[in-house]
Nucleic acid binder design. Structure first.
Lengths: 333, 333
DNA sequence: TCAGTAAATGAAAACAATTTCAAACAGTTT
DNA sequence: AAACTGTTTGAAATTGTTTTCATTTACTGA
């Protein structure tokens, strides 16, 4: 009736050894005589014993699972990071509990709490803003946290990303070099330091260096979805923009298509650089020029960093900046 | 030094009650006098007590987490399902452990085993073929399993999908109605029953009804990636196809772009229907005609079904087929 | 042969909850 | 006042491991 589970106790009894010895065998502890090891292994095989990870977690205080907070798995930028995270996690024998937050501050805090209740060994956070409440939770629990593709201006927790400021500056400079004067900057809310602080600053620097006045009209805040592309393009047109730096690929596709649907030629009539180098950039026609971020690697490196923190290994740097470059494709001349 | 954790024991002591009573309060058991409940709640609040989910899991044999095996999070089709799964899981207080399998049979089995070792309360499997080994594991553990967007011809485990056979038949018929004679069918390996059995059968039925001979040249097996689109289109050209039904959106974009890059007009010179209705279908120009699958819902319903199985509730049907329809967009006349 | 050391083993105590079962209590009914 | 009922409560067992610490065994060199 009930699924009778084989426990370490059954194995011990059958093999005529103590639970401790079985535990040692299972965990690869070298202090077991080869003959005993073989005996135990045989019984394990015969009974088809599988250690119960929950009991293990309770006894050892390690669950070998890490929590991953992601705004939306359906967003290619984040899912690419997630893939890198999972691969490295698997490599180090961890599993990931994935939780969508929709970048909703309440959900983020709530999800973090349930992850901590589940005793995850570490957390990888993707999002935008680290609210005070979130930071408080981070430091209250002694669980290591690493941000992936997310910045913490205070650098209190580990993080992996690229230099958004420089990348944006480079993007704008490329458009400037192509002769544009009215270059727009489109991103999500400036409350997120990644946009309001870093990217915006890069944008301003480039303009300043070219002695072009900052025009608020050209700076647009919008959600990162395909469907708002049309409305955003309307605004761009109204502001007289002839080129734009867009902070999200999906939105960039929306803007690009809005331009094309209006009969414009890209890049002849309008130029565009996007920011994430997700698969989308090569799927559009023309293909989108983009900041090439090593998405998979950001996730992978973040997870690797987390493993170090979980093992209390020494780490050179808690904040790592990965290289990027700008790749001109079809949406710039 | 060590993070001193507050346990149920601390709460009991401080509140002057037994652990059992604290447990009752935490779990909302009604058999607690209101005054006691308040007293306990106050202490919980004061000590900031959080129940340890691992200990809970061990004692109650329920982890409130389900395992989700996904081929690749980075594939929009699957990530859309995953989003539906997670939302419903959250609604029912479950968390998901997500594991990428790359549709690799070995990885699938291995991942399933670690999920079971972690005592997940249920498993949602996305993939293609249910190998014998996998099925054996499914039935050996008494853990409920539901397939999402995946078929099991034997209908031994629960599953949620659409009628792939009919959908493919409809797609082909639409192309037939547009006057095509040489219609190709492009999918992944026919070893997957979803392709080799259902979709292919739908394809054949439509041809037969139109008295068109089945031509092997027109049936192409290929991986589901964007980058092979070019090679696939070459094959299509060689076989003289003037239209195609493609089983994956990403691949469909590749094929579409290959056609466009060769200077063809779509749908004038070549027609195409894709199968997943992911975001991609509206991002291309022209937009892709597609089988409209309720992606999010497939995931959501699968998870809902799983909750029923986990609670041993009666379920009307273990196999549910969701409705679909064909939406003609820009790649068909 | 015997001490000294290292390797191998086991008993029992954690780990932090839930669950079972019996006892205490309170409120009715006779 | 006793008997009966149902609600609250707590003691102790249970869950399946790991870990600590003591003990036994095996081996080495004097």
């Amino acid at each position: 009736m009930d699924k009778q589970t084989i426990t370490i106790y059954d194995v011990a009894r059958e093999a005529g050894v103590s639970m401790a010895t079985v535990s040692r065998v299972v965990n690869g502890n070298p202090n077991v005589k080869p003959t005993t090891r073989k005996k135990v292994l045989d019984v394990i095989d015969r009974l088809d014993y599988r250690p119960n990870a929950v009991a293990r977690g309770l006894a050892s205080k390690k669950t070998t699972t890490v929590g991953v907070i992601i705004p939306d798995v359906t967003n290619l930028y984040f899912s690419s990071l997630a893939r890198g995270i999972d691969d490295i996690a698997t490599m180090y024998k961890y599993n990931i509990i994935l939780a969508n937050s929709d970048e909703n501050e309440q959900k983020e805090v709530q999800v973090l709490n349930t992850l901590l209740a589940k005793q995850v060994d570490g957390v990888i956070f993707m999002g935008n803003k680290i609210t005070e409440e979130l930071r408080a939770e981070f430091s209250r629990s002694r669980t290591p946290v690493v941000l992936a593709g997310t910045v913490d201006p205070d650098e209190q927790v580990g993080s992996v990303n690229i230099d958004y400021e420089a990348a944006t500056k480079d993007s704008v400079e490329m458009l400037l070099a192509n002769g544009h004067q009215k270059i727009a900057f489109v991103s999500e809310s400036h409350e997120d330091p990644i946009n309001g602080q870093y990217r915006l600053s890069g944008y301003k620097q480039a303009l300043k260096a070219a002695s072009i006045a900052y025009d608020e009209e050209l700076v647009i805040q919008s959600e990162y979805t395909y469907k708002v592309g049309d409305a955003v393009f309307e605004q761009l047109t109204k502001a007289g923009a002839t080129a734009a730096v867009v902070a999200d690929d999906e939105l960039a596709v929306g803007v690009l298509n809005a331009a094309l649907d209006r009969g414009l030629s890209v890049p002849e009539d309008f130029e565009l650089i996007t920011s994430n180098n997700s698969k989308l950039t090569e799927m559009t026609r023309p293909q989108m020029s983009t900041v090439v971020q090593p998405l998979y690697d950001i996730g992978a490196v973040a997870m690797r960093l987390l493993t170090k923190l979980m093992n209390k290994e020494e780490t050179d740097e808690k904040t790592v900046k990965l290289p990027y470059h700008i790749e001109g494709k079809g949406t710039t001349k």
